[in-house]
Design a protein around this nucleic acid. Sequence first.
RNA 1: GUCCCUAUCGUCUAGCCUGGCCCAGGACACCGCCCUUUCACGGCGGCGACGGGGGUUCAAAUCCCCCUGGGGACGCCA
Length: 481
Amino acid sequence: MLSTVSAPRLRIAPSPTGDPHVGLAYITLFNYVLAKKFGGKLILRIEDTDQERSKASSEELIMESLRWLGLSWDEGPDVGGPFGPYKQSERKAIYRTYVDKLLSSGKAYPCFCSNARLSEVRQEQRAKGLTTGYDRHCRALKEGERAALLGQSTAYTIRLAVPLGGSTTIRDELRGPIEFTNEMIDDQILLKSDGMPTYHLANVVDDHLMEITHVIRAEEWISSTAKHKLLYQAFGWQEPQFIHMPILRNEDKSKISKRKNPVSLNYYRRKGILPKTMLNFLALMGWSYSADNEIFTLEQMIEKFQLRDIHLGGPVFDLVKLGRLNQHYLQQLSPDEFAEFVRAEIFSTDFLKSLHPLVKDRLEVFEQFVDRNSFFFNGALDYSALVIVPKGKEAGEFNEGMAELLLLLDDLYLWSEAELHTLMENHRAKLSWKSKDYFMPVRLIISGRPDSPPLAASMALIGREMVRFRLRDYLKKNSHI
RNA sequence: GUCCCUAUCGUCUAGCCUGGCCCAGGACACCGCCCUUUCACGGCGGCGACGGGGGUUCAAAUCCCCCUGGGGACGCCA
């Protein structure tokens, strides 16, 4: 299954668009294990081709989270390597030259269609119950027309000219051959009108140039793999082996999402999950160490790992089991490790410093600190002794307002005190609730007490996932009455 | 809607490739008992699954087909 000729080269290719995701840790783990097992290399490549959504801050967070887990890489933007640069935004010129090759061999063509026309076409297809995809309008252009448009348009895209007949069969190392009729494959955009490549192009070009031998990624990529294979063929390149891991699921079996589940690695870190717990737990998602033992180290996993032992059913990310596993590992901690862990992860100096402005004026003596501010460190809160729904307001209406807030918080781009303040004030105004009918209940849900420090600042510190978790938790406990 | 993937206890899974050792094993959760001045930990026990239907075979959780369920993809996102 694995070529033993040379050491494998694997890569992880996160897109820096938000908090580091458990899905990334999951995929990284398996890439890491396979690389280590066969003495290969793991490459970190930042896929920041989406200029709208990519954030430099997210890049650092991603690396920090992976380091926390103890999953290291051999080549990447921070450590360098012989195949750099390792950030796609810095490889723009490279992609352009490869697109030109495709253009001159007729394997790709420029497309001048506007977004408006594209969505119109899509809508029409959907209405007719057809598969949606580009109608190849610009592929049919005559040479003269094309030249003319090229002369006057500044913004156009480049699309892959997918063969009109036949089929493309990809091979997944876990599933075997998977066949796609070429009719079903869209003339994928390779180069966006801003000159940046799309994932499909950048990914294939980079995997080739970086000599990647095995691509381990999530199952959601299977259908795109046909496009990738076509690209490899168009370039005349040997494709890597593809391994698609099952997708992590929410409790309801849908693809894991922040709407329904905490997905940020930072959330779990702050919650006090140990790296080895997370690794052990993630390994159990689709793989097992043995029939009667599920506690094992990364090293043991590397030793025993076999691709063929991966189970393809989509595993539910079970918080209860994660917690129990962590308890086991916590029990094993030595006094030194215990002290170090609490100091580094729970009462970290950085966190205490950021708490300082919120709590300093409210304290007479330090003994009040822990009790009054426990909600900064806790998980779920107990609301049973609190009256949260404001007087004169229907529980139903109130809960709807809170559910709406939950969604707004999810969409908030920048998680900061100022942004939170504005968001809530706007939401309150939109609902036209009185200030005290809005802010006090939210305060109670978030902090569990009426005398907590300023709300927006507290929320900023507690973090998006915990804030959303508490709102969700409150609604879960109270909305079905 | 179209295409693709997938299917063992509520959940994570072992077993499936190489059919009999499986009236299906482990773990989490749950229930009970023991330990214990509390709560936990720990120990012991219990509940609990091969989605359905057809084949193939002396024999099927294991191989094949159909159905059904679940999921994913169908973006100038990755």
